[in-house]
Amino acid sequence: MKNIVLVSHGLLAEGVKSSLEMIAGKQPNLHTISLTPDGDNLQFGEELEEKMKTFAGKTIIIADLLGGTPANVSLQKYMDNPDVEIMSGLSLPVALECVLGGDRTPTAILASAKETMVDLKASAEEVIQAPDVLENNLSQYEAFAGQANIVNARIDERLIHGQVAGIWSSTLKTQRLMVINDAAAENTLQKTSLRMAAPKSMRLSVLTVQDAVNNINAGKYGKQRLFLIFKKPSDVLKFIELGGKLEHVTVGNMSFETGNREITKNIYITEEEAHIFAAISNSGVNITAQLVPSEPATDFMKKLTNKEK
C-alpha cells in the first residue's frame, strides 16, 4: 500500500484527511504535515523528514500550492528519490483519487480529479436540456433475460454521493449505476443532480421501481455489472414484490430522525421499516450493514433482532 502524505499551509491537510475519512473510512496510510503560522521552511522540512523515515515502500506527497513552502521543500528533499512522487493541487477530489488510484501516476490522478471541477449551474442546464430516451420495446433483449449481473444492491438515502460514486463503484468495477426510486425518477432536478454526481466512466439509469424490474428482467442491460441503489427499504420490498430478483442487499446510510431506533452509527430505522426489513429477509434476501468496502460487513438482521430484545 502506497503511503500518502498531505502537506499544506495551516490546517488544510488535516481538514482534507478528516473529510476523506468520512467518505472512505479510516486510512492508516494517509498522513499530514502542516506549515504552521509561526513555522518556517526549516521546521517544515524537519517534520517532513521525520515522518518520511517511518515509511517503507512507495510514497506520494500532495502539496497544496504550487510554489509554496510545502511543495518547494518536498521537491528539494525528494526530487531524486525514485520511491517518492510529488504533486500539487491538494483538494478532497485529488486526495480521494490518490487513495483509490492504486498504482496510477500523479498525472493520471490529477486528470481524473479535474473532471470533478465543473460549473454546476451550466452543467445542470446541459443535462436538463438533454432529452430522455425512453424505450418501450424490450423484446429485443430476450437473449439476456434472466442473466442480470447485479454486483450489489444498496440502501442509501443519499443515493449517489462520495461513498457510492468514488468508493463502492470503483471497488465493484461497476459499469452501470441504477438509482431505483419512484420520486427520484419523476423529479427532473434530482435526476439532473444524480447524473452530474455519477462517474463519467459509468452509465446511469434513474428509474421507477416498476421500470427497473421490467428492464432488468427483460435483459436490457446484457451482462453489464449493475450496481442497484435504493433510497429506502420500501423500494427494495416493492422491487421484490413486482418480480425483481435479489440475493443480497447492503444497508449503507439511513439518517437519524426523532423516534427512530439506532441499528448502527449510520443506520436509524422506524418500527415500520423494521417490519419491512423482516419481510425482505423472509423473502430469502441476505441483508448486511456496511458503510464502505474497507470496513467489515455485519449481519443486519442479527443487529436488528438484538436491538429488539
Rank of each mutant, 00 (worst) to 15 (best):
A197C: 03
V99I: 15
N136S: 12
A145V: 06
L159A: 06
A183F: 14
Q129Y: 12
M202G: 00
G102W: 04
G162C: 06
Y141A: 03
M178V: 14
G89C: 04
A197D: 01
G89S: 03
E126H: 06
K121F: 07
L120V: 15
A130S: 14
A113Q: 07
L90I: 11
M87D: 02
M117P: 00
A198I: 00
R176P: 00
L134K: 14
G162F: 04
L204H: 03
R154A: 05
E97V: 03
A130P: 00
A184T: 14
L177D: 01
S123W: 01
K121D: 10
L159P: 09
E142N: 11
M178R: 05
A95V: 09
A198H: 01
E125M: 10
L100S: 10
L134R: 15
K191M: 15
V179C: 01
M196E: 03
I160N: 00
I128P: 00
S169D: 09
S201I: 07
V164G: 06
N149I: 04
L90K: 08
L92D: 01
Q147H: 09
I109R: 13
S123M: 04
L110Y: 07
N137P: 03
T105K: 13
A111P: 01
D103N: 15
A145F: 04
W168S: 03
Q190W: 05
I150L: 09
W168R: 05
M87S: 07
A148H: 05
I180R: 06
C98A: 15
L194F: 12
N136T: 13
L134M: 15
Y141G: 00
N137R: 12
I155A: 11
V94D: 04
L189Y: 13
D83G: 11
A185Q: 08
E115M: 10
K121H: 08
A148N: 02
R203C: 01
L96C: 04
C98R: 12
L120N: 11
I180H: 04
D119Q: 09
C98P: 00
E186C: 13
S139F: 07
T171Y: 11
E135N: 08
L177H: 07
T192S: 13
A185S: 15
L134G: 11
E126K: 15
L92H: 04
E186P: 05
L110N: 02
N181C: 07
F144P: 00
S91I: 02
T188F: 08
D132K: 13
A197N: 08
A145R: 11
L172E: 04
R203G: 14
A153F: 01
A197L: 04
I160M: 00
A111G: 01
N136Q: 10
D103W: 02
A143I: 12
A143K: 12
H161M: 03
N152Q: 13
L159Q: 05
A95N: 14
A122E: 11
D132L: 13
D119K: 12
A197E: 02
V164N: 04
A183W: 11
Q190C: 05
L120S: 07
A145M: 10
S193D: 01
E186L: 15
I155W: 11
M87H: 06
M117R: 09
I128A: 07
D103K: 12
I86N: 08
L134F: 12
Q129K: 15
S201K: 12
G102N: 03
H161K: 02
D103R: 06
A108L: 10
N137S: 09
I155H: 13
T105H: 06
